[in-house]
Simulated scan of single mutants.
Amino acid sequence: MPRPPSAVPEPEDADQRRAARPVVAYPDDALAGPDLALYGAALASAETVEVVTVPPREARCVRVPAGSFLRMVSVEGPQVGDLNLWNAGRLEERFFSGKTRALHGTHVTRGHRLWSVLPWLRPMATIVADDLEWYGFDADGAGVHDVIGTRCDPYTNRLLAGSDYHHCCHSNLVRALAEATGLAPEAAEPLVHDVLNVFMCTGFTRDTHQYFMKASPVRPGDALTLFAEIDLLAGLSACPGGDCSASHSSDAAACFPLRMEVLRPDPATLEGWESPAPSAYDRSHGL
C-alpha cells in the first residue's frame, strides 16, 4: 500500500534534518573474522556422508555435526530455499536473521556468519563457499541470499489472498521439524523462525521501499556451503514460488527439488578450531 501524502507541512529546516550523516548501527570491525583458509582446506578434503533431497513445495531436516559442512545445491532448475537452523541439542537456540542482518547487511555471502538468538548470540554457521557471490547488487538494488524476508506462511496468505494454502515454507518447515524431532506440530511451530532465503534475489523498491523479489540467478549445480560451528539441525524448504520470479504460496510456479549434502572433513584439517562459546554477557546483573 503506497504511503499517503504527508498531512504535516515540512519545517523550514527539513533539508538540514534530512542531511544528517548516516552512521552504521552495528559496526562489525571488532568482530573476529572466520579463518576462511582453514575452512577451505577442510572443505577440499571433506567427504559426503549424507545426502537429502528436498522435494518441490516440501521441506526436510538434516543433522550437521559441529565441524562439518552443509552444502545446499540447485539440482534441476532455478529454485529458492528457506533455511532454518537450530542447535541440535537445544532447539530454543536458533538462527537470528535480524541480528545477522544488523551485523552483515541485508544479503549474506562467503565470510559472513549466521548468528543465534539471545541470550546465546554466537555464530551457528559460517558461509564458506557461494557460487552466486559474483552477483553482488544489481541495478535494482537486489542481491542474493537475503535475511530480509520472513518466509511465506499460510497466515499472511489468508490475510492477503483470503485463501488457505498448505505448502508455504512455514508450514513445510513445521512438518519437517516435527518429523525430525518427534514433536507434535503444535509444539514444533513456535520453533520455526525467520529464515535465510537461499538463492533468493530480493531488494527494496526505491520509491516505496517495499520488499520485492525477482527471478533467482541460480542454475543447476550452483551451491551455498556452510560450516557448522555448533551441532546443527538444519531445515530447508523448497519454496512454492520456484525461482520467485512472479509469485509464491501457490501451485502456479514451476518448482524443482533442492539437495542438502552433509560433508565431513578430516579432523586433522581443523587443528586449532573450537566451537564458539555462547555470549559472555553476565545476565545476573542486568535482568
Results as ranks from 00 to 15, higher is better:
R94S: 15
L173T: 00
D251N: 12
M124F: 14
Q210C: 11
R264S: 08
T48K: 10
G105Q: 02
D82Q: 03
T100V: 07
H112F: 15
P5F: 11
E47R: 14
S97P: 02
R17K: 14
G182W: 08
S275P: 00
E133A: 14
D231M: 08
Y155G: 09
R71V: 02
A238W: 07
A187Y: 03
A139P: 01
L103Y: 13
A66G: 08
R283W: 13
R63Q: 06
A30P: 00
A268S: 11
A280F: 07
D138L: 08
W273A: 01
V108F: 12
V75D: 02
P154F: 03
G141V: 00
A7T: 15
A268N: 01
G203V: 01
V73Y: 00
Y39R: 07
V51W: 00
F227K: 00
P220C: 11
G141H: 05
P265V: 10
F199D: 04
E229A: 09
Q210N: 12
M72N: 00
P217S: 07
H145E: 01
L233T: 05
V218M: 02
A252N: 14
T202D: 11
E229N: 14
P22Q: 07
P55Y: 03
V198T: 11
P22N: 06
H193E: 11
E58W: 05
Y39V: 03
R3H: 08
A223C: 06
P190H: 02
P217H: 13
M213F: 07
A246C: 13
R151I: 10
F137T: 14
S171G: 06
H167V: 13
A129C: 11
G111Q: 15
P154H: 09
R259T: 08
V8T: 12
V49G: 09
P11W: 13
H209A: 11
S216R: 06
V24F: 08
R17N: 05
V174H: 03
L132M: 08
G143F: 02
A277G: 05
M1N: 11
D282E: 13
P11F: 12
E76A: 12
L287K: 00
S250Y: 06
R94I: 13
A139I: 05
L196T: 09
G235E: 07
R101V: 04
